[in-house]
Design a protein around this nucleic acid. Structure first.
Lengths: 137, 137
DNA sequence: ATAAACCTTAATGTTTACTCTAAGTCAATA
DNA sequence: TATTGACTTAGAGTAAACATTAAGGTTTAT
């Protein structure tokens, strides 16, 4: 038996399209088929997809993931290289996050600036509104 | 006078191509030209480009930035809306960073898993090497 | 048994954000 | 004056990561 594309797509939150696309791009090289060609995902396939999602969610490109997958298929001699790849990726992501935090600080300053501008404007608006208030009364 | 595309591109770390592209996309709507059509950037243009970069660096799309720019051109009545846009963007970015941190944790677990695998493999390799050692001796 | 609901492949289309090319203008320098 | 080099435009090309479509095969429920 095994899981269908639909079932898996719901579990891992990727569309069937994307699952097939990943397979075509060499990210999922071991998916079994029925004699009629229908995909049958195993539990270890699900695990594997979990790892792929992990890398994808942290911004690794399809191409880089494919390189990782290719190494994985070459057996345990590449385990060290794979560890190093993951470590490097982790560092990259951490750097990205730090950079994003720095950029975010700038945005925060801009917001403060705009807020002051807005407050000054709102106040000046209020003054020009006063005659209108009087009119209403 | 004012700065040329080349000069500005070096200051803000965007290629002249990108500066012209941003202008064409409506992100830089106020760049003056000489009578012969050559761009002449002012200091306030540089400030503006700084804001654009800020938004771009935190992942705002060209389209969203254009919406912000369009509002900016409509005068101070849109100041409040603009503040709200920036606030919302900031929240989005913060959420993204948090999500990325969560994803990163998963990557960390995977690295630990692979490292254990590698260590086990390296050890088993060492053992199978022993006979070879004996042979050398 | 036949339609609905699912699966398959191959190939083309979409979006975003550039990136480059071609063909030309203009200013300054040898 | 000739040519070098920086600038201009419009428009085409590129890369990544899907998304959609066409054309058809399979399974299952009624």
């Amino acid at each position: 038996m095994g899981y269908s594309v639909k079932t898996v797509s719901e579990q891992v939150n990727l569309s069937p399209h994307v699952l097939r696309y990943y397979e075509k791009e060499g990210l999922l090289p071991q998916i079994k088929r029925t004699k009629s060609g229908i995909r049958q995902y195993s539990d270890s396939d699900l695990d594997w997809i979990g790892l792929i999602c992990c890398l994808k969610n942290t911004g690794m490109s399809i191409r880089q993931i494919r390189d990782f997958v290719t190494l994985s298929q070459q057996g345990p001699e590449t385990l060290r290289t794979r560890c190093e790849m993951l470590q490097k990726h982790k560092c990259d992501v951490q750097r990205n996050i730090e950079e994003m935090n720095r950029h975010l600080e700038k945005v925060t300053h801009k917001i403060e600036y705009f807020t002051r501008q807005y407050e000054a404007y709102a106040e000046s608006e209020q003054e020009t509104q006063k005659p209108a208030d009087a009119l209403v009364k």
